[in-house]
Simulated scan of single mutants.
Amino acid sequence: MCLPSKTTIDPVVCEIHSTNISRQFNLLRSMDESVSQTIHCLTTNIERAMIKENKLNKRRQKKPAKVTSDIEKQIIVVELFDDNNNQPIDENEINKNAWFNCRRLSINGQSYTVIKFRFPEKILTNTITTAFVEIDYGQYEYSLFDLYVTDDIETKENDHTQWIHVYRGLFCIFNDEHVNKCVHLVCLPRNNSLREGMQTETISKTRIIQYPFYLPMNIRHELTKEYLPIGSKSFRLVSYNILANGYASSADAAKTIYSCCSQDYLEHDYRKALLLKEILGYHADIICLQECDASFYQRELSLVLNQYGYLGDMKIKSDSMREGIVIFYRTDRFVAIGNYNIKIGEYLRYSEQLEYIRCRCSLVSEINTHLLERNTVLQ
């Protein structure tokens, strides 16, 4: 793999405790420089910022110059950590080697994660494969993602693995020829000025498996092979309860509610691939989803559907229940002019229009309590 000539953390936003300092420190260092030199540079920059802030504070407070504040006394400790074993990186290492293992920069105990990967446990052919990639100091739309496949992975001591490039982009649809292959994802994080960070990579823990051919959605998709014309007087709406992962993965789910369903099919990584395929296969103008996980919406669903011309809005039931309802719409047919969300319990409790219903429900305490505590939401 080709590596950029510089390693960049762009930017590091450092907050010094017990001070008002919160600023960006751009770290652009040579790949062949030692970690100790890089750490020394960053430490010096932070210390200079603290001294400058201290002087400004003295001027504001009109204190004598000889007064030494806690800011000047504070020691700055900068370390790089290997997330695999949570041990500090050897400072004698050069940046080129250190940053491949390093995923976390620590400044006085405050962690700054450069990038995180998570590949799905189940990777199916003929469905959209989404890898969760968390980039703290870059942006998805400007970053580069390359996917490779191979039949065999050599050991690290004798790594001569031959990777075949199959796709550039965060989302990929693997073909039948890729069955039983391992996947290698390489990410080059970039920001909106196309400034590049450190290239990072990960390998899937499992191999690609065959997509199940005989599914009810295949028959339904025969009726919705294309989008309705933009100028059509009709529109197509799809509404779907996609079963929040919190419910599907609960202890009662496998034993009681879905006892007839194999645990493999309840796994979110397996279900989400089929959900994306089914939802997109209807070529809908408006998509309404219930029991959608907030994390799934933010990290994957909205990103994928945006690529297919949809915009969405989500309403979460409550802070304790991180799932809710979502509406997506085709941007080439609709324009959002506003949104309105209500929680049934709150609406029943305070709405003047529902005064009569409240009075009737109050006659039966069990019903009254049940209705007022409902987390159901409407969009």
Rank of each mutant, 00 (worst) to 15 (best):
P216F: 00
K52E: 15
D82C: 15
M31F: 08
L194K: 07
V179H: 07
H178K: 02
V67W: 15
V77I: 15
C14V: 13
F132A: 09
T224K: 06
L303H: 01
Y308V: 00
V13S: 05
E91A: 10
L80T: 00
P11M: 07
R168I: 02
L42M: 11
Q24R: 14
T202N: 05
R59T: 13
D32L: 15
T113H: 12
V114M: 12
H221T: 04
F100H: 13
Q110A: 10
E154A: 14
D136Y: 09
R29G: 05
S362A: 14
S234T: 09
Y247W: 06
V67D: 15
S302P: 01
Y137W: 08
N245W: 07
D332F: 04
V364H: 08
E278W: 01
C102R: 02
N191T: 02
V13I: 11
N45M: 15
T369S: 09
I89Y: 05
R358T: 07
A65L: 13
S106Y: 09
E366P: 03
G309F: 03
E154W: 09
H40E: 15
C172S: 12
A253K: 04
E346H: 11
Y297I: 02
Q379F: 12
R330I: 01
K277F: 02
K6G: 04
C260H: 14
A254F: 06
M50D: 07
T331C: 06
Y247R: 06
Y282V: 04
I287L: 05
N101L: 08
N57P: 00
N126P: 03
H184E: 11
C172E: 00
L243V: 08
C260D: 14
N86C: 12
D293V: 01
R168F: 00
Y227C: 08
V304Y: 00
A273W: 00
N57G: 12
Q199N: 06
Y148K: 08
D313E: 11
C288T: 06
N126E: 13
G345K: 02
W99N: 04
